[in-house]
Simulated scan of single mutants.
Amino acid sequence: MNPGLTALLVVAGAVVGAPARYLTDRLVQSRHATGFPWGTFAVNAVGSFILGLTLGSTASPAVIALVGTGFCGALTTYSTFAYETVQLTAGGGRLFAVLNAVGSVLAGLGAAGLGLALGSLT
C-alpha cells in the first residue's frame, strides 16, 4: 500500500479516535463518584478489544491502518493511564493505584485476546 495513503488512513482513524476517547472518558467518569479512573480504564479495554478483533480478522492493510493504528492508537492512552496511576499513589490511594495498574493490564490483555479469538472466527 502507498505510504502516503497509509498515513492518511491513520490520520482519519485518529480524527475519530481522539474525540471518542475524550468523550467516552468524560461520560464514564461522570457516572462514578470514586477517585478511580474508570474512563481511562474503559477506553483502554475497549481499544484493546477492537485492536484484537481487527488484527484477528482478515482485515486488509488499509483497515488495519485506519482502525488498528489510527482509531485504536488515538482511543487508547498509556500516558494517561500512567499519570493517573502515579496521581493515585501521590494522593494516598495506593490500593486504587495497584488495582488500576494490575486491572488495566489484565483487562487489556484479556480484551485483546478475546478480540483476537473472535476476529479469527470471521
Rank of each mutant, 00 (worst) to 15 (best):
A117V: 09
S60M: 06
A33R: 12
G110M: 05
A107C: 10
T122S: 12
L118W: 12
G108C: 11
L75Y: 05
P61T: 09
A112C: 12
A42F: 11
G108Y: 01
L27D: 12
P3G: 11
R94I: 10
Y83L: 15
A59Q: 00
A101Q: 08
V67A: 02
V67C: 02
L114I: 09
T80P: 09
L121Y: 12
I50V: 15
V105F: 01
L121R: 15
P19Y: 11
I64D: 06
L8S: 11
L121G: 13
R94D: 08
L109I: 13
G113H: 07
L55Y: 09
G93E: 13
G47P: 04
G108N: 04
L53H: 00
A20S: 15
A111T: 06
L106M: 12
V67D: 01
Q29K: 11
T69F: 04
A117G: 09
V102W: 03
G110K: 03
T85M: 07
S79A: 09
Y78F: 14
A65W: 06
L99E: 02
E84L: 04
A12H: 05
L121S: 15
G73I: 01
G47T: 09
A90W: 12
L114D: 02
F41H: 03
L9C: 07
L116I: 09
G35Y: 10
G39L: 03
S79K: 06
A20T: 14
G103C: 01
V98W: 10
L118T: 08
G113R: 06
G35M: 06
T76F: 00
L8W: 09
P61K: 07
A74Q: 05
G113P: 01
G52M: 00
G91A: 14
A7Y: 13
V16Q: 04
P37R: 08
V105S: 00
L95V: 13
T85Y: 04
V105H: 00
A111R: 04
T89Q: 13
G73Y: 04
Y78N: 02
W38T: 02
A65N: 08
T58A: 14
T122Q: 13
P3T: 14
G93L: 12
Q29S: 15
G17K: 01
G119F: 07
V105I: 13
L27K: 12
S57A: 11
A59F: 01
G73F: 02
V86S: 04
R21S: 11
F41T: 02
S104E: 05
A97G: 10
T85E: 05
F81M: 08
V10H: 08
A42K: 02
N2C: 05
G4F: 15
L55F: 10
L114F: 01
T69H: 06
G91S: 15
S104C: 04
T54A: 01
N2L: 07
V28M: 09
L106S: 08
L106N: 03
